[in-house]
Design a protein around this nucleic acid. Structure first.
Lengths: 255, 255
DNA sequence: CGAACCCTTGATGGCGATCAAACGCCGTGG
DNA sequence: CCACGGCGTTTGATCGCCATCAAGGGTTCG
């Protein structure tokens, strides 16, 4: 990675507390790579060769079986992904694909596993990341099993609003097609769902969301009583087509 | 905990590698408790006061919202549960309920968090547990989104068979009602699903499962191409009504 | 300008939920 | 001992949510 980028990466939660020596070893062996949109980074079933850290852009993690295909989660900066596969040294369970142009830090899995043993701060950061990811999936699973589709849409909109500090106007990230898959429904039904939600206090035009009556929307969507603290993320981080000025796009992953 | 029980617990993966000093401090502050069947151990939303380790018996983790109610996972011995809530110091996301009489080790969450910082072996064990749990939820979510109900049943039966070393005859653990909820369907449809699977090479009578044609069942269910290694678990561990000889049942959790 | 592709809207169909009823099992209490 | 009630399971009938199929409008890009 280039000299100018290092401090920026070193401040990420995953590495901020590490000892300088281990961090240097890790960074020396890693590389920051820019990928174009719509590129598949790896496929489910492959051995986990690299820990990925999304620095900029947006990545979709999906799974497929028997022709069907679904989005399991969207990774927004700054988060690592497929950490669980790396620490267990097992094949990826999900396929990763960039949605927008993305800067991704690739760290050799073997080295990461080794350093986890040596650096307590890294170990703790790994635990935090895993625990947060775990809880996110629990919530997703419960959401899917307990709510019907229009309620899921409502809750998704409320969550997005919360992440933007309670904004009543915001843009949907990514395409609706993918959002539909993430929420476990077809694009057609997502569209109809938006229609139905007009009566519940939200309007969606194109990718512009306007919450007109938050109380009504909450009464309809019945969000969970307790949340994890929601970090304020960079609202534009996931905007599709956002350009990234660093480096040249797209050598594929080695190995 | 009693003297006789200590070595048994100390051998658990989570504690096997710990330094004796930290293990002693941890065990001194923990207590092994026997709970009767059908007892709610804690509710979602409560602050995570104890790390739980299921030593014997069977526990259901569920979630509910707006009157609906679903089983998210079944914990079998020997596994910790709600580790993610403990390490993040956040409220439980799931409600825990015993299915059978269960021996559970309760460890003060605050102490666990402290010791994780001090004992590398414990830290690593925590990472492994979290990563495995994470991957399990990813698989569950993909299963739910990508397969329809009868396929899920088929895969569930194949998984159970694999856990029993490929047995073609085995008993379903727990009630069908709960299994239906775990698989994301109603008891009625689970029953109909079993009916439909007769044509695919499995028969279920009562809780007795007989796989007559594994190939056919696999062709129908389309299991994932890659699995995590499946430990052989104690087949009888989760049998409902199994009696446990240790201790007297059920003082509720303090705090 | 045309070809793709996304999104929307309408019509239809199927999977699975809900409602309903009957059977078996089991524990309780007369 | 038997009667009874409760509960889990099964089977059947019906309903509704959502997927699928189909068509048209909008946008992007070659």
């Amino acid at each position: 990675m280039r000299p100018g980028e290092r401090p920026e990466i070193a401040r990420l939660p995953l590495f901020a507390e590490m000892r300088e020596e281990e961090r240097s070893r890790l960074f020396a062996a890693s590389f920051l790579q820019v990928f174009p949109p719509e590129l598949t980074l790896f496929e489910a079933g492959q051995q986990a060769d690299f820990l990925h850290v999304l620095v900029d852009g947006c990545v979709e993690l999906k799974a497929s079986n028997n022709g069907r295909d679904t989005t399991l989660t969207i990774v927004e900066p700054v988060r690592s992904f497929i950490l669980a596969a790396v620490v267990t040294d097992m094949p990826y369970l999900m396929t990763a694909r960039t949605l927008s142009a993305s800067r991704i830090l690739l760290m050799p899995a073997e080295l990461v596993r080794g350093l986890i043993h040596q650096d307590k701060a890294l170990m703790m950061a790994v635990i935090r990341e895993l625990a947060n990811g775990y809880r996110e999936f629990v919530r997703t699973l419960a959401d899917l099993k307990l709510r019907q589709s229009t309620e899921r849409i409502g809750n998704y909109l409320l969550l997005q609003s919360r992440r933007r500090g309670g904004a009543e106007n915001f843009q949907l990230p990514g395409e609706k097609k993918m959002l539909a898959s993430l929420l476990g429904m077809t694009p057609e039904n997502l569209s109809r769902g938006f229609g139905a939600l007009v009566a519940e206090g939200v309007e969606v035009h194109g990718s512009q969301v306007t919450i007109r009556d938050r109380e009504r929307l909450e009464a309809f969507s019945r969000p969970d009583a307790f949340y994890d603290p929601v970090e304020n993320r960079d609202v534009n981080a996931c905007k599709v087509g956002a350009s990234i000025s660093l480096g040249k796009p797209g050598r594929p992953i080695p190995g």
